[in-house]
Design a protein around this nucleic acid. Structure first.
Lengths: 245, 245
DNA sequence: CCAAAATGTCTATTAACCTAGACAACCGTA
DNA sequence: TACGGTTGTCTAGGTTAATAGACATTTTGG
């Protein structure tokens, strides 16, 4: 495709940012897969109808995200594809499976509360309705881009300091370990795809109409006792879920 | 809420555009419903931590969209909402909660009939099955756009002239008042979302596949005696239901 | 080695964005 | 009518974004 791509001026969005978004999209679409690199800066400048320096600003932003890597004399290599691949297996952990797909991953605790378990939460955790559990709202990002938001429930009596531990350690796995649970496995995962709601649009920085994949999962200790009930909503255009049997 | 809102600099997105997006969101959320207008420019500038001129640029963009309309000396009025916000609380009334969200609201009586109460209607109204009640079919519109259609049931013996009163007064609240009921409260509301059926497609002027939110509600007099059982179907893409506790 | 092609760096200029302050015009109300 | 509060307009200056051009540096391939 040699077509001129659409960038608009005076919309309040800088050209370099629009161009960065379009190049990211092209990478994600696999447009440059054969070459393994982005077209030369001069070519991109021609396609977008802008100066080479403007393209350089866009590429610098993508390099900052860790998406591309420029080498003088050779070109700008694609380092990572935008769709992060999440393995889903008996040993699913959030940050671990990402490996070197992202330079930096972060899970931020938005809110937490204690409340009586009810409905599917009580059923999933196999505790009596009314027993206290901890709810935590997380947003997970890779290289500064949010990829998922989740709501998790933990039995209060077994993991009373889940939220505090998580805040200090930044990881559910480590928070479990700090409270005496060295290992756990995924016992069930259910997937649903739907349109993002208003909250998800904001948390995941999506555009209206965007699609989320909702994964409802239960983790259990090695003895099979449930330790976590979670509902994670992934930004569908940023991830690929890989079911491992 | 007097909290400072988050705008980021040097992201390639102009501050005025970020602010315009946030104000649009607030309007859509109904944050300014009581006033019917946006806060003064100086206040917004303080909230966002920017110069007043920057806020003016944002408001100019929203005015260009037709979302707001500034009047010198008075303020910046909200002209149109993306979604009408319906408050749902103990004192829910249809037209009242809309405030200045729409220039003009109308409730049209399509049909009415008297029939014996049965099933959930009798249960909801707490009257013996077989006792006569009045059924009314309404379509409510804001600025000419239908937003909901509803089916309501009233006990015949207590409000024998519900339909006639409504036709004259154009409001359920007023029709109640004319028949001696000065006040009533919402005692239960149940919400369901589903695809619209053929009737709803026509009444609400929707496209096939559209979604409706079905609210099944019971209103009672101050003594707790049910006076109205209603099932309202909202065009999901035109409204937002705001649950107030 | 040389030339072509690509990225890196620098200067300079213009346009857009943001801040700051002052004052005019207008509305509502006391 | 006077006043406080709000939007409208103007000037001025600083910062960021974008364009333009020149040249250096590095890689690749003949």
């Amino acid at each position: 495709m040699n077509a001129k791509k659409a960038v608009e001026r005076q919309t309040g969005v800088a050209l370099w940012r629009q161009i960065a978004d379009l190049i990211r999209l092209s990478i994600s679409n696999g447009d440059y897969d054969q070459m393994g690199m982005v077209p030369p800066e001069t070519v991109l400048a021609g396609q977008f109808g802008v100066n080479r320096h403007t393209v350089r600003s866009a590429l610098a932003a993508l390099a900052d995200e860790g998406l591309v890597h420029a080498i003088q004399g050779r070109g700008t290599m694609i380092q990572r594809k935008e769709r992060l691949s999440f393995p889903i297996s008996r040993r699913t952990r959030f940050s671990q499976g990402l490996g070197d797909q992202a330079r930096e991953t972060e899970a931020r605790l938005l809110a937490h509360a204690t409340l009586p378990a009810a409905g599917e939460v009580a059923t999933g955790l196999k505790i009596a309705p009314g027993r206290t559990c901890i709810r935590m709202e997380l947003v997970s990002s890779a290289d500064g881009r949010p990829v998922s938001c989740s709501t998790s429930y933990f039995p209060m009596d077994r993991f009373p300091h889940m939220a505090e531990q998580f805040e200090g350690l930044g990881s559910i796995t480590k928070a479990f370990a700090a409270q005496g649970l060295a290992d756990y496995v995924r016992v069930s995962t259910e997937l649903v795809a739907r349109h993002a709601n208003a909250d998800e649009l904001m948390l995941l920085r999506l555009s209206p109409g965007a699609i989320v994949i909702e994964a409802t999962a239960i983790n259990a200790d090695p003895g099979g006792v449930p330790v976590q009930f979670s509902r994670t909503r992934f930004a569908a255009d940023r991830v690929k879920l890989k079911i491992e049997t």
